[in-house]
């Protein structure tokens, strides 16, 4: 799949932003006043910034409001609704903490639940697609949720929780890669099922046109996949191993900042791989993966 920067930024940053909102909604840390304002500002910058980035790849962003209507069937629509509800509830909860000095606990929990729901619905947009076997796995939502919870805990300064969850995130990421590497072969789709030509070995002889097209640009991304193992190791070290080591050292704000920057860089790398490594079955018609 084509790794569009807007979608990588959106899923990475919004995941972190809503992850931070989950912990803030649970009262971890139990901040108020201007400290709370700073935490909520970071969370909203990430969550809303990511959502805005996601509109950049739309053909008609001015019609984006229509995307809230089809929540009965569409995970993308559900995600939009969940995100707006979470942002509204958490804004109210945050306003209480910052301006009124009040902690509306139940409102925080509901806001945290919708923030978690936003990350889950985002993951289901990918996980639902049978056409991309590497995404069409139950571990895909687990992966997105562990990233949001681990990264959110790190941003929320919950050192003890973050250490554990970042290790869990690393393990889930490795499990996702191991399962994903077998997904296309295990999907049962091949050039034979794609063409229905069962009387011999099928080889793509000639593509429909000499030039490229939307389908190849969008679904048959091959550049850079050969570096995937190196990128996997670099991404895993940056997102999980290094931050955990830094959190184990005696606490300092500088080290915490380095841990956050390292984690975000790692998330961006593995999210790029999430798209670049994913094979769409339409590639079978072109004899490419």
């Amino acid at each position: 799949m084509h790794p569009a920067p807007s979608v990588i930024l959106f899923t990475s940053l919004s995941g972190l932003g809503f992850g931070l909102l989950i912990w803030l909604g649970l009262g971890l840390p139990a901040v108020s006043g201007w400290v709370a304002f700073a935490f909520f500002a970071i969370a909203y910058a990430l969550a809303v910034g990511g959502l805005l980035a996601s509109t950049f790849h739309l053909g008609h962003p001015e019609r984006a409001l229509k995307a809230f209507t089809q929540w009965r069937s569409s995970w993308l629509s559900r995600e939009g609704l969940c995100a707006v509800i979470a942002l509204c509830l958490m804004a109210l909860y945050g306003a209480g903490l910052v301006f009124a000095g009040e902690r509306w606990t139940v409102l925080g929990w509901i806001g945290a639940a919708f923030s978690l729901g936003t990350v889950f619905t985002t993951s289901m947009i990918y996980s639902q697609l049978k056409t991309v076997p590497r995404w069409n796995m139950p571990i895909t939502p687990v992966l997105f949720l562990s990233f949001a919870l681990g990264g959110g805990a790190l941003l929320a300064g919950q050192v003890a929780i973050a250490k554990t969850l970042l290790i869990v995130t690393g393990v889930v990421q490795i499990a996702y890669w191991l399962a994903g590497d077998k997904a296309l072969a295990g999907s049962g789709s091949s050039m034979t099922t794609a063409t229905g030509l069962t009387h011999g070995t099928v080889r793509a002889f000639e593509p429909p046109h000499t030039g490229t097209n939307y389908l190849l640009n969008e679904f048959a991304y091959v550049v850079g996949r050969r570096h995937s193992l190196k990128l996997r190791v670099i991404g895993l070290v940056l997102l999980s191993v290094l931050p955990v080591i830094l959190l184990l050292l005696p606490f300092s704000h500088i080290l915490a900042l380095v841990a956050v920057v390292s984690h975000i860089a790692g998330v961006l790398i593995v999210r790029w791989l999430f798209f670049a490594e994913a094979e769409h079955v339409v590639g079978l018609y072109y004899g490419v993966r």
Partner: peptide, 16 residues
């Protein structure tokens, strides 16, 4: 007139 051009339907189609 309702399509926002998000491309998700093309992702969901196995046939291109």
């Amino acid at each position: 007139s309702d399509c926002i051009g998000c491309g998700l339907c093309a992702w969901a189609c196995p046939y291109g």
